[in-house]
Nucleic acid binder design. Sequence first.
DNA 1: CTCCAAAAGATAATAATTTCACAATATTTA
DNA 2: TAAATATTGTGAAATTATTATCTTTTGGAG
Lengths: 213, 213
Amino acid sequence: MRKTPPEIPDVILNRLPLYYKHLKKIKNKNIEYISSEELAKHTGFSSSLIRKDLNYFGTFGKKSYGYDVSCLCRQIQLIMGMHISKTLIIIGAGNMGQALAFNSGLNERGYKLKALFDVKVDLIGKSINGSPILSTEELIPFIKKEDIDIAILTVPSEVAQEITDIIIRANIKGIWDFTEIPLKVPDHVFLEEQHINEGLCKLSYKLFQNHPY
Amino acid sequence: MRKTPPEIPDVILNRLPLYYKHLKKIKNKNIEYISSEELAKHTGFSSSLIRKDLNYFGTFGKKSYGYDVSCLCRQIQLIMGMHISKTLIIIGAGNMGQALAFNSGLNERGYKLKALFDVKVDLIGKSINGSPILSTEELIPFIKKEDIDIAILTVPSEVAQEITDIIIRANIKGIWDFTEIPLKVPDHVFLEEQHINEGLCKLSYKLFQNHPY
DNA sequence: CTCCAAAAGATAATAATTTCACAATATTTA
DNA sequence: TAAATATTGTGAAATTATTATCTTTTGGAG
Ligand SMILES: NC(=O)c1ccc[n+]([C@@H]2O[C@H](COP(=O)([O-])OP(=O)(O)OC[C@H]3O[C@@H](n4cnc5c(N)ncnc54)[C@H](O)[C@@H]3O)[C@@H](O)[C@H]2O)c1
Ligand SMILES: NC(=O)c1ccc[n+]([C@@H]2O[C@H](COP(=O)([O-])OP(=O)(O)OC[C@H]3O[C@@H](n4cnc5c(N)ncnc54)[C@H](O)[C@@H]3O)[C@@H](O)[C@H]2O)c1
């Protein structure tokens, strides 16, 4: 039933996790089947867009019935590779780094947090939510030895590029960046920039777009 | 020089903060003028797209010269309403809530954090980065008295809708939601959902899209 | 002072995304 | 068992977004 997807447009990859989020909520209400029309009401996307998006990956629906909620959840998990075990480190064990060490979304998506890294001596040696905080000096050997897939970057923005260059030398595969300054990475490294304050910008814009300035 | 913008497409509102981010970085290097072509190299967007986006809001460039970096930064700040003072509370003073209380992006964008709220008695009375943690019982009177514009929601997902309904009754204007379950809000309330784990989904997808599953 | 080059701004062309509309098919009911 | 109904999957049409091209303006070189 699943297709081998061609190049998937980014807009679709952005919507998929949102479908997933809503489907989980629907599943929790013990609703077994849902039509694209109903899901459209929940998500705010049009029903035909939803059907089209899903059909990129396969035919998951049942005519005259709709979609099996659990089954669709599972399919999206598979598409997103949530069942594949991935290794992870957090660099910068400050406010954001420590908060993310408690992010239950990591486990749910197949990530295993192996360690946090910091330069502060009073942090090194402690452990957060079961993961040790190590010295950044151990960064390169650790990435190599533990074959780390992804690094979460929560260091101060000023040192972000410096750290990035280091972990790239250690052959990191992907970077999830929370810092405020844009990073340069080579093409073979996947970079996902988490522009947190962008959401805030949109909120202010929308709240005050009709106001004088 | 500034136009009164018509309805701005969302794609442009998403890019504007990214332009801002790159311009700040460029400004820090003491570069005074930048051409759309140069900015394109930095941001990854095409030069004509950048020019087009900016022209939605006014004519900020100087022919044969490019854009004055400081001036363009300032213009984007104005467009985004960063100069307008806005009041803010954080509901849920856990890991994420406390981390966000240290988010310097808040001040930079004109937000004044007035308080955090929680139900845990051992948190209430403490203060984080200069803002007090109050009991959720004070939520409604506080929002009304202090005329709070925006609430950051960092409570457990299970209670998110319940809290949302409360703050809407207290006439909150906007909600910046970090929880994992989609919220229902009336049309007059601006909701910005911060789908943090979406970025993670995209990373896994891209790392493993060619792998068997 | 005139010409040349650079780069914005405007317009036209192309490409991507979304919606529309309907045929195909499964389920339910009579 | 046949007709009625629901709802998917999908090609075509419409819309929206992006890129390419052209025109205009400005600053600087000669
Ligand atoms: N806190 C937020 O809400 C928030 C929001 C948006 C973006 N960010 C960004 O996230 C990043 C972290 O923010 P934060 O609030 O957690 O800051 P923080 O200062 O609390 O944490 C940064 C940590 O990085 C450590 N560090 C410094 N240099 C290091 C190095 N070379 N190697 C390893 N670790 C190093 C510090 O010791 C500190 O523990 C910043 O870039 C910030 O701009 C934070
Ligand atoms: N930690 C992360 O990295 C992360 C990532 C993505 C999303 N989130 C989401 O952000 C939210 C908060 O996450 P967290 O890690 O900070 O959790 P947390 O448990 O550390 O914090 C939640 C806080 O909310 C408080 N709380 C509970 N019920 C409340 C109520 N009715 N009113 C006010 N406060 C209440 C709790 O006492 C606690 O202090 C969750 O919904 C989580 O799914 C967190």
